[in-house]
Design a protein around this nucleic acid. Structure first.
Lengths: 385, 385
DNA sequence: GGGCTTTGTTCGATCATCGACAGAAGTACG
DNA sequence: CGTACTTCTGTCGATGATCGAACAAAGCCC
């Protein structure tokens, strides 16, 4: 994955990526001498970052001692804040979930209330996992709105009253807190768990609104103002009648979002209020709902066709509430994308449903926290301290 | 620009970027000891990569000796191959042009003919600049079609018959040859010469066709198959009647490209065959042409509005033949983008005409070659040899 | 049990880097 | 005009990281 670096903290990166599980592997991958590797691994073990497990299988000689991230003593939290829910996953350093929870919680109650709730849940989850608060190394958080990633402040979020410019990291004192848009952390979760070797990936969340997380060269592309991926307000053909909350008309999410599909169903005499209702109707076999979901897929596909030409990704992952009925949504999307995009761009393109489902955001947020902690710079700092 | 690395070849990167012009600068920027810097600079001077110029101005003590890239002894070529032309710029290591040439040349004559022409011109330009062929360190080349960058082979280019899969680098023997799409090298040229500190930039070429070069995190984004930026075949609203050479209808370049505008003018009774004719008509004050160019700008703006939401660039540069009448084209583009994109994304967005004009491609291709040669890996290899 | 292979550690040698010093080349000022 | 001061650059011994070789450990194969 990584080329072949030689600096100190890079050793840990290789271990965490699973590229190397023994000292010999490390020596081969980094080009450093075995003795040097041993010395570095010792330092990492001493700091509690790496542990040795039982010996592996021999390949004809002395069996190598397996190395892995130290899964005790450290903990990381991934927080998924939605408009009406809060999910938290407590993870160890290798990304395995130690404990998790899910609550109904209105984000519009404002940062103090919501973050106090999160803080309380963190204590409970840590207790459940039997780790002290001090073991919590970093917190990742996905929120439903644009965020200035560097400072962790929401940037004029439309559905988060009271959160504008609120400095979320400061609420948690000294603990490192990484805050990002929810779609971005979902994209990250999906990429790291299921598509680690894919370089360019799009994650499209189809829920009440529609958003997109962009992975370019394996890292999140956030854009100049951190608003990249906001595809919900791209104009689609021939729906000028559909007004959008943003003030324009014919926005993608005003014609193909969960709320829009529900409204159209209601107009046809089938009662539906939200994307969840739509999903229920489709699962119950309602043909009108099924047809409209597929039609929504076509509209989304039309926008994605443009983005495929522009960005040329290898994989597009479809997630969000509506993707629970992904067969129909995907059929519509695929139909349009493969017809409207250039052959060169679609030839090796896969369009697949989310593999992480409802957990993508919390897991992705946790991964954001873990990767921050395991970044070579941070590790070098810890080891040299 | 670069964070604060400490490895050997990075010193040269700082010098070439203009971030450091003296040994003291280098020590401050890299954090290395002054003695270490001196030693490295000596090595670079000995290899002929860096030279000392006359002393700079004193700031109260001994004046520092200025360092810069060694501009003699090395040469780089930037080759801009279009459908009907060939421009070559011979440059020194700092990107200054030593000699250039421009010829009419049909790319459809095939690789052997065209590359032989290029090779001959290279010899002439080198002679003009008084440097031996051996001084030519690398060649960058932009071609009008998709390219597999890693191997330098065109990938099913529509307007380059005979070039498919042709291994261009092999034609030039041992010299390093970097081949890329022409729009990509234009984007690179524009970025490096005029927008070096911008992280995310789009370069849009409006000529007979329409294409886009993407700079993300300061580097070219080529996509999974190297076809990223192919925005000419994105569908636009309400022009289903316009058939495109790609087989679809309502493609952006079928309604707003130079050829399309010329065709529409002809339909209105104003004779025009190509984008160049359109430009001439606009410059002559023809109001029909002016109106259609502005209308083309609006259509392009509609597509760009989507891409701004998706990619969130800081700057969009408009280039290509039609941009010679950029006031009108830009007016149309700006009008639509600022109306249809999200405020957060447009707030700090600039949409500007190309500063490099017709030279963008050749210069960008040359920069591709220079940056390849000056990459830390390559420099370390040279110094340690 | 005795080769054989692979892994991991120990230890002296080597090389890059550092810090302190001295010299170089200017300015500021009496 | 000379002296103090500042800033830049090269030299040199000390230090610390890295390496390679030798050695010990731990398995397999016969």
């Amino acid at each position: 994955m990584t080329p072949a670096p030689g600096s100190p903290g890079d050793v840990l990166t290789l271990i965490s990526a699973g590229s190397a599980t023994t000292r010999s592997d490390l020596a081969r991958l980094t080009g450093l001498a075995r003795s040097t590797i041993s010395q570095r691994v010792d330092a990492l073990i001493e700091r509690g970052l790496v542990e040795e497990t039982e010996s592996g299988e021999s390949t004809g000689g002395r069996p190598p001692r397996q190395l892995r991230l130290h899964t005790e003593e450290h903990a990381f939290a991934g927080v998924d804040l939605g408009a009406t829910h809060c999910r938290i996953a407590l993870m160890d350093m290798s990304g395995d979930v130690l404990a998790e929870c899910e609550d109904s919680l209105l984000i519009e109650e404002g940062p103090e209330t919501v973050l106090a709730h999160v803080d309380g849940r963190l204590d409970r989850l840590l207790a459940e996992a039997g780790r002290p608060r001090a073991a919590l190394r970093a917190i990742g958080m996905g929120v439903p709105g644009p965020v200035e990633f560097a400072t962790g402040r929401p940037n004029n979020p439309p559905i988060m009253p009271g959160w504008n410019e609120y400095p979320i990291p400061e609420y948690f004192g000294g603990t490192a807190v990484l805050v990002d848009n929810d779609v971005n952390v979902m994209a990250l979760g999906e990429h790291r768990n299921a598509f680690g070797d894919i370089r360019h990936l799009l994650f499209v969340k189809v829920g009440t609104g529609i958003g997109c997380g962009i992975v370019a060269e394996g890292t999140l592309h956030r854009g100049a103002q951190g608003s990249a991926g906001d595809i919900g307000h791209i104009r689609v053909n021939g729906h000028e009648e559909a007004g959008c909350r943003c003030g324009n008309s014919a926005c993608l999410e005003a014609v193909a979002g969960g709320a829009a599909v529900a409204r159209r169903l209601t107009e046809l005499g089938v009662a539906a209020e939200s994307g969840a209702d739509v999903v229920a109707l489709v699962q119950a076999g309602n043909t009108q709902a099924l047809r409209l979901v597929r039609e929504a897929g076509r509209l989304i596909g039309e926008v994605l066709a443009s983005l495929v030409n522009f960005f040329n990704p290898e994989v597009i992952v479809i997630g969000g509430a509506l993707s629970r009925v992904h067969e129909h949504l995907l059929a519509g999307i695929r139909e349009t994308v493969y017809r409207r995009s250039l052959p060169l761009a679609t030839h090796h393109l896969s369009i697949v449903p989310s593999r992480m489902g409802i957990n993508a955001a919390a897991l992705g947020a946790g991964i954001l926290a873990i990767e921050h902690y395991l970044s070579p710079d941070n590790i070098n700092r810890i080891v040299n301290a």
